[in-house]
Structures are given as structure tokens and as C-alpha cells.
Write a protein that binds this DNA or RNA. Structure first.
Lengths: 106, 106
DNA sequence: ATAATAGTTAAGTTTAAACTTGACTATTAT
DNA sequence: ATAATAGTCAAGTTTAAACTTAACTATTAT
């Protein structure tokens, strides 16, 4: 399943506090690697590693303009997350109502 | 913000491979701590620690019946996740369309 | 009553992954 | 041309959190 790896990458990426912070910062508008790293008190290398993980999860997009890398939100990740949550909530509740039919027959 | 801590707990919980596996296993039906731990090749203690984190994230519910602890899915976590994804996707796309208005005025 | 089973708690160990360093490239500014 | 800036890469260090052990409680089975 290709879909499964996408979900794995998504939860892995947002499972880390600093990456969640980067994501929420980018929600307010695009930023360079430098602009993200500085207020976090983290090296450019460290930030670059986080960005790569967020990109793999399709939560962030980047483009290199001149010597700087501009980072923006990629809505695809959030969309995948919404689909996932919706699907599994529905799967579970249909299973639950099937159970109710057995436990409470009439 | 109370809401923010809920999200933090949610992503932290699902950010770990073993906990995602526990979650997907419970989607198929309720299991005891023992039943979850054994096929994973992990101690009851280790599993108990994961379950506690999943409970705090409202992804799992447990009840102790006799000497065993029954674990089931708590749909509240998935619901919170869906709301979160929907809200932020909308926030971002409204910001994006505002940007398009400036960049492409007519 | 005793043994076995299921789980819990505190404390220590191990490991994955977060983070840094140092050497490097590419771009922009002086 | 040179210096400064922004970022990258490989390799090593550090840390958070995953995991275990050992001693314990509570419940069920013999």
C-alpha cells in the first residue's frame, strides 16, 4: 500500500514538537530556512533536516530561489490527514453499530 | 489553550510506529494488554506505557475487567484530528486565495 | 491454600532520532 | 576580486523516549 506509507510519513513528521512548530509557523506565511531556524535557536542544518521530513510527508513545499530556500505549507498533507481521520472514524462507527445490533438485538 | 494540548498529545501518540500499530490493531476489535503485547514481541510493561499515551490522546479507551485491561478505540481522537485537518486546510486555502488576489489583481 | 496469570510501578538500560560540527558549494553584496 | 550570507553534506554527539528488569498487587484457576 502506497497510501499507508504516506500516512506513516505524515504522523512521523507531525509527531515531533519542533516540526509541529515549524508547520504552525508556516501556516502564518512563507519563510526561509534561516527565518525559521533563528527564532528556534537551532542550526540551519538541523532545520534543513526537519524540512526534508515535512516535505516527504507533503506537509511543506520548498523552492530554492537564489541562495535561499523558501518554505510554504503544502495542503496535500492536511487533506490526506482529513481523509484518513474521516475514513477510520466511519469504519469504526459502522463496526460499533454492528456490535450494538448483536448486544442489543431489539 | 486546552485544544492545543489535545492536538499535541494526539500527534505525539501517533508519531510512533508501535503505537500506530496498536491503534490499527484495535480498529479490528477490542483486545487485552496481553493480546496486544504478545504478537508484537514486547513486554506487558512496554505495552502498558504505549496504551497510557494513546489514552491521553483520546485515541483509545480502556476498562479493567477482573485482572485484565480491555482496550478499545476511542473515536474522539479521530474526530479531533478530522476537525484539526479541516480547520487548518481551510485557514490555509483562504489565506492562499487572499494572496492570489494581490498577485493576480484581475 | 497455592499456583498461575494479568497487569502495575519505579528505576535503569538501550536505541532511534534530534542536533551539532566542520568542511564544502552557490549566490549575493561590497 | 573578496567577503559575507544561505544552505548542504557526511560524520559524530547528545538526548528523549522506547524498552526492560525486578519486585510488587490483584484476580482467577487448581
Amino acid at each position: 500500500m502506497n497510501d499507508h506509507n504516506e500516512i506513516e510519513a505524515l504522523f512521523f513528521a507531525l509527531g515531533e514538537k519542533q516540526r509541529r512548530h515549524i508547520f504552525f509557523t508556516l501556516m502564518e506565511g512563507e519563510k526561509t530556512v534561516k527565518q525559521l531556524a533563528e527564532p528556534m535557536g537551532i542550526t540551519l542544518t538541523g532545520l534543513g533536516q526537519h524540512i526534508k521530513i515535512l516535505e516527504e510527508a507533503k506537509l511543506v513545499r520548498t523552492q530554492k530561489i537564489g541562495r535561499e530556500r523558501i518554505c510554504t505549507i503544502n495542503p496535500e498533507g492536511l487533506s490526506t490527514m482529513e481523509q484518513f481521520a474521516k475514513l477510520h472514524r466511519n469504519l469504526w462507527s459502522s463496526r460499533f453499530s454492528a456490535l450494538r445490533k448483536i448486544v442489543e438485538p431489539h
